[in-house]
């Protein structure tokens, strides 16, 4: 894989790094860990679409972080007098303006923060809850399993958006409540997944081995079973991100999520709906933003699925 034409000094350290990472005889814990991470990364980076997805997500994070610097105009205060409903490409307003004279590009940039926050918060709340319930349920079996899984089934029985709507209606509209509502409705699939994975490894010899060593059930679940569920869970969460963004946007669109003047993408679509035929860009631009970010998460998730698949870990 070395390029013979490139000068030797620049490839040599590169090669030795690679060797150090890929060695069959790591000399320290960290080297072993890094080597494994490197192999995973190599598998991941071979998949171009996955890398594209990753780039989109990295771009989203950067945009969210530097939104204040990047946004040419205020995201909440518009120029009602001089800049209402300008089409895309108008001087100073690359993506046009909305009915309040606000720059759509600026609103999208700042709105990315809300999107990212919703996605991150939901993942942080829902994934651990699902993981915990699923692994405990799968490992304990018996009554614990039956009770936990029936609760999960009840949550699963409702369509996600309807359940989220009910929660928001009870808690009151607002972005925080939307996050809580979405998190409350998205853990059951994770619990199911974690339970299935747990059932798969629970009776394996390596779990029996730690059990025989005298490990407590808590220790077995946290240190030995959860790591086995983690990769499929990460993949599933990543693939669900798109759905979460859409649910958040859906709640926003229905007026139950972020409240104006917050530049949440779903809310922006909702407000652009009134003039969708004449000023199409008002609703379309946030729609495209949602599409790109959802696509990014899906591509990333697909790539992770291949890269993290434990069956491929040997190669």
């Amino acid at each position: 894989m070395t390029d013979p034409s490139s000068p030797a000094p620049s490839t040599a350290p590169n090669e030795s790094w690679r060797e150090w990472l890929l060695t069959a005889e790591p000399r320290s814990r960290n080297q072993a860990r890094l080597g494994r991470a490197y192999v995973t990364w190599r598998r991941f980076s071979e998949n171009r679409l996955a890398v594209t997805g990753l780039l989109i997500i990295v771009a989203l994070i950067l945009v969210a972080f530097f939104a204040d610097l990047l946004a040419p105009h205020s995201a909440t205060v518009g120029d009602l007098a001089g800049a209402r409903l300008l089409p895309p490409g108008s001087p100073g307003f690359l993506l046009g303006t909305d009915d309040q004279g606000r720059d759509i590009l600026s609103r999208l940039l700042v709105g990315s923060r809300i999107t990212l926050a919703v996605v991150a918060l939901v993942a942080i709340i829902a994934a651990p809850v699902g993981l915990l319930i699923g692994t405990v349920s799968g490992f304990a079996g018996g009554y614990v399993d039956a009770v936990l899984m029936r609760i999960t089934d009840i949550f699963l029985a409702f369509p996600k958006l309807i359940l989220a709507l009910a929660f928001v209606a009870a808690l009151g509209p607002g972005i925080e409540n939307a996050v809580i509502a979405i998190a409350l409705t998205s853990w059951p699939p994770y619990a199911r997944l974690a339970r299935a994975e747990t059932l798969g490894v629970r009776n394996s010899d390596y779990i029996a081995a730690v059990h025989l060593m005298g490990a407590s059930p808590t220790r077995i679940v946290i240190r030995h079973i959860m790591p086995m569920c983690l990769s499929s869970l990460i993949v599933r969460v990543t693939l669900d991100m798109a759905g979460i963004i859409l649910t958040a946007a859906g709640l926003g669109f229905l007026g139950l999520g972020a409240q104006p003047p917050l530049p949440e993408w779903g809310t922006m679509i909702a407000s652009g709906r009134r003039f969708i035929l004449d000023q199409w860009w008002v609703a379309t631009m946030p729609g495209i933003a949602i599409l790109i970010v959802s696509l990014g998460f899906n591509l990333l998730g697909d790539g992770l699925r291949d890269a993290l698949d434990p069956r491929g870990a040997g190669r």
């Binding site: 814990r29 072993a32 010899d205 390596y206 029996a208 025989l212 005298g214 790591p227 086995m228 870990a313």
Partner: peptide, 23 residues
């Protein structure tokens, strides 16, 4: 007992945790 009695399993491919180093 857990310390005094140890077990070695039949299938060495199944009795070691696939995600953990020997260490």
């Amino acid at each position: 007992f857990r310390r005094a009695v140890q077990m070695v399993f039949q299938d060495p491919y199944a009795s070691l945790h696939p995600r953990q180093t020997v260490d």
